[in-house]
Write a protein that binds this DNA or RNA. Structure first.
Lengths: 216, 216
DNA sequence: AATACTAAGTGATACACATCACCGATTTTT
DNA sequence: AAAAATCGGTGATGTGTATCACTTAGTATT
């Protein structure tokens, strides 16, 4: 991870147009910190305390939850440019340990907002309050979708949704991942995923290669 | 459903001590509306628009999500006294259709807050803002727990958790429900639930009767 | 009291996916 | 170039739960 104090206000304007007030933009530029993460890097791990709320401006992030017992893991959702991590809000505000892990899927850049401002700006700037509320809202919806998917769908549908979500997050039809990684994200077995991917290939839905799946 | 304009400020004080500011309490008392629902009554259904955010002061509520396709349903969580419905916030604010159904498990009383105040008070009262944020937070955690449970646990564990959650919501070890109802909440088959309950009875964990399960 | 209904118990079978065991292909390390 | 590691494919078998078909036990209706 590397820090930087680049031209935040320009970047902010492009990726977070909702953050409208001039004064707020200035505050973000002043207090926010540009942060870079390499693909695969763990941004925040289970049980860690969070000191910043991220505004993602480039790249994508995988958010996962670990089983308390046997260390199995399941993907909750992906985040990409224009997103923030609602889970962070609560963790920050309550000063609680993180119950999730966030990990860069691609090289990722974000603006880190120190927690004290996150709360302060809520009362001060209408657009920040709306932004935060909307983010929470989106996350609730996303989580309900995950529940829906796990509860009602078979693995083939979940796999298809997963690949779609991943394509959307990275903006790339080529997904670089091993079958094992995909299986982990879906809390499934590698063999099952391999067989389903093969089936999808036969149906002309994907092209398979070593470490890659291309959506057609 | 019946309306009433009782002594809201006393009730409020007992169930929502976090709502601290005098002025805010007065506003709630002035603008809030006491509402009663009978056990089994649907408070809000899928696709409906919401005009109030509820502060629950008595009873308990089941919150469910329906499958888009074949109308199957799964329980998200229970709400009880001291809770509010975070899902309502977002639906209200965005003026979106509800993606969930809420239904009284027992006879339930709540204070309905018209949506315009919910947003307004966020900027005006620190304690209201904290209350709203904390509620969102609790809901996120609850949903992640549901995902955890569905993804990692077998039906016997899920059933145990369900019975515990229901006991906690109603404060009663006697759960009045048919096996079919329980199966619906868990998106399982009645036969599976019957067999598991029987197993739990043999293990001395519950006592079974027609339409009831008593936790031991 | 007879009838019909609803809830619950139970065996047989079906199906999705996990697990196990192994193999061949490709890539990385030495 | 050889050895080791990783990745993916595939058959056999196991397990949890759904589904189907039926029975028994209460409860409500007539």
């Amino acid at each position: 991870m590397t820090f930087e104090t680049g031209d935040i206000s320009t970047i902010l304007h492009q990726n977070f147009p909702q953050i409208a007030e001039r004064e707020l933009q200035a505050e973000v530029a002043e207090n926010g910190q540009l942060m870079h993460f390499r693909a695969g890097e763990v941004i925040m791990d289970y049980g860690s305390y969070i000191k910043m709320v991220p505004l993602i401006i480039k790249g994508s992030i995988r958010v996962t939850k670990e089983d308390d017992l046997d260390g199995k893991e399941i993907l909750l959702y992906f985040l990409s440019a224009g997103d923030t991590c609602s889970m962070s809000f609560s963790c920050c505000m309550m000063n609680k340990k993180s119950m999730i892990r966030t990990e860069a899927v691609e090289d990722t850049t974000m603006i880190g907002i120190p927690i004290r401002y996150v709360d302060q700006w809520m009362s001060k700037y209408q657009s920040w309050k709306n932004f935060v509320m909307l983010s929470y809202d989106n996350r609730l919806i996303e989580l309900v979708k995950v529940i829906d998917s796990i509860a009602f769908n078979n693995m083939d549908q979940r796999l298809q949704e997963y690949l779609n979500a991943r394509q959307e997050a990275t903006g790339n039809a080529l997904i670089e991942a091993t079958h094992q990684e995909i299986a982990n994200d879906l809390n499934a077995s590698r063999e099952a995923i391999s067989r389903l991917l093969k089936k999808m290939e036969n149906l002309g839905k994907v092209e398979l290669g070593r470490n890659q799946v291309r959506l057609l």
